[in-house]
Design a protein around this nucleic acid. Structure first.
Lengths: 256, 256
DNA sequence: CGAACTCTTGATGCCACTCAATTCTAGTGG
DNA sequence: CCACTAGAATTGAGTGGCATCAAGAGTTCG
């Protein structure tokens, strides 16, 4: 096979899942097409539990999935929201290391793990692509650790909005309309804060004209630069270009 | 060169880096032996900066390395401490995504990235091994997100101690002596707290007889079960076996 | 022995959590 | 079409865990 990518590249999309170019997903998908079976999952339905034997690997075709880990007393940390093209359960472990649930109704492509692994060994190209996928996840995991350990609630929310914007870049006609398919509690558990804090922070952002709240699940971005400043320049390794120092950020913070 | 591992394997080690069996490292090491060059790094010396062009990949042969990301104002999040057998800069990106420094004096094996990548494409076995390595890192990154987002300072410290114990399992004669090669500030930036909090928490643990403080950089574990309870049952996916509920943990917390 | 650390300890303050009440929203059945 | 209801989101008041600021005590090393 020649070196030209097979998949549709008609429109110049900038969609960056977890910092990984979309080309990867498509190519993996092509490679695995033969193994695929479909699966539908309802909102809030569990796809698999942490600790379940890992027989299948999934690709999200439609909808949003949350993956998370919990402590015994119920404290939950959502480690990612997965959308079209993202992979679920991608590991060499015998057991899933996190629980996966639908946020919305979800359509999944399901690949049997044993056959996938066999293909991996036989096909270096595929192997490299999956390697790239995992790498992207690792990179975004490190960004998330920075966020969880060192950012304030406001900065966390700002970063989250910027992340979502990057993801849906090019997919929506309106550039600064941001949909929030997940409830506040999910956002909170993703950012390591409480729902109340999410709510209050969103209100604050509205007050200082960073965003506007259209519906409960939809905000419009009024001041992208302001958000970027709050989020910090490296919020997901691309999109920034502008280096900004602390003073600038402070300027935003007191503005309202 | 034959297939027998080159480095010392005289004693039955159970060392689990980031949840990955040590066998992986050895095998990768053997595969890459031909490419290797050595490099010495002093304590607190930078190995590479985040954003530097990524021409080399490193394996830690001796010493401890910290990898971290920073915000503009200097807030730092350490995303990992790497020891013998761990890989540095393992990614397909053109630039390093974190900064790496020696905690102690460090000896590194250095592999040129381009040649490593070529080998990856030609050698599915090697590819699979590296895949496993990355997978392990991803798994521990998810544990760390749970820790950073949802655990209290005390639980964080307890988890950290248990992690270190697992790592040095089998390498030391004395089972419950724990060495802390890194300063308090590093521990703080790894756990998302301040040095003061680390200091106070360690003192508290001593007070309630969970640990004993031998030297500044060495503690002895007096009550491993107590630590495990505080850390939570899944603190790094193995070693636990015992499921414990909230009440038990509370019991510990008030004990002193 | 003193300089420069790192680590500890104390006092105070604030951000975000907790608890609680109200409002909003979406879905249901009359 | 409009109550009615359950769950989600917001809002408010009060608290507490951890950060901040500031000394003081060890430790290392020339």
């Amino acid at each position: 096979m020649d070196s030209v990518a097979k998949h549709d590249s008609s429109q110049p999309r900038l969609k960056l899942h977890h910092g990984t170019p979309e080309t990867l997903q498509s190519e993996v998908h092509d490679h695995l097409f033969c193994l695929m079976s479909r699966q539908e999952v309802n909102a809030n339905q569990v796809i698999f539990f942490e600790g379940d034997p890992c027989n299948s690997i999934f690709e999200v075709a439609k909808g949003v999935v949350r993956i998370y880990k919990v402590l015994q007393d119920g404290r939950r940390q959502i480690t990612g929201f997965l959308t079209r093209g993202d992979f679920l359960g991608l590991s060499l472990d015998d057991h899933y290391v996190y629980t996966a649930e639908g946020v919305t109704d979800v359509t999944l492509c399901r690949y049997p793990r044993d056959r996938l692994e066999k293909m991996l060994e036989e096909n270096p190209r595929l192997s490299k692509k999956l390697f790239g996928l995992m790498n992207g996840e690792l990179v975004s995991a490190q960004f998330q650790m920075l966020l969880l350990g060192r950012k304030t609630a406001t900065e966390k929310l700002a970063t989250f909005f910027v992340q979502l914007l990057q993801r849906q870049e090019g997919t929506e006609g309106s550039e600064h309309i941001l949909n929030l398919p997940m409830p506040r509690g999910d956002i909170a558990d993703y950012l390591g804060v409480t729902t109340e804090t999410v709510s209050r922070t969103i209100f604050w952002m509205k007050k200082v004209n960073l965003i506007e709240l259209n519906k409960t699940n939809q905000v419009s971005i009024e001041d992208l630069n302001g958000l970027l400043m709050l989020a910090g320049p490296f919020c997901s390794s691309r999109l920034t270009g502008t280096m900004l120092n602390r003073e600038d950020r402070k300027g935003i913070t007191v503005k309202g």
